[in-house]
Amino acid sequence: MDLESLYQEIILDHYKHPRGRGLREPFGAEVHHVNPTCGDELTVRVAIEGDVVTDISYDGQGCSISQASASVMFEQLVGHPITADLAVADEFLALMQSRGNLEPNEDLLGDAIAFAGVAKYPARVKCALLGWMAWKDAVSQAVDRESPEVTR
């Protein structure tokens, strides 16, 4: 295991040139998640229309892994049905918790597969998951808020 396999080019590129960063309107829900062990913070907003995630906007501060992970998440999840995104997020979570013992599904993960090396560093797994867990929280709140209108 070496540093290059942890800090893949894709990760460093997303860290230096984050995609979709900054908080935007409109949004269905906003959450603020922190990693209490290191103080990293991320605010995530999710906008949905029907069953599609139309925007994810985020802002925060943290290490390269946490910030790049949020940027990759933006690219992978925006514009897709919620159910498909949840499948990607679950696969990402499984990959992160695998300690490197899982053959990742590249079709599902796309660029997020670059984080496979993080799974071998347990102390960094929370960094990689910060944005994704915040997104999952925000999307479920957004759906909850929208569902009364759907059933009306």
Binding site: D2, L6, C38, G39, G62, C63, S66, Y121, R124
Partner: peptide, 28 residues
């Protein structure tokens, strides 16, 4: 470079330091 990333590179060299807010968040 974020402290977490500094610590990671140092660890790769065998240098074990602490990174984060060291349980002194208000000070940071």
């Amino acid at each position: 470079i974020h402290a977490h990333d500094v610590g990671q590179v140092l660890d790769d060299r065998g240098v074990e330091v602490r990174v984060g807010h060291h349980c002194a968040w208000p000070l940071h």
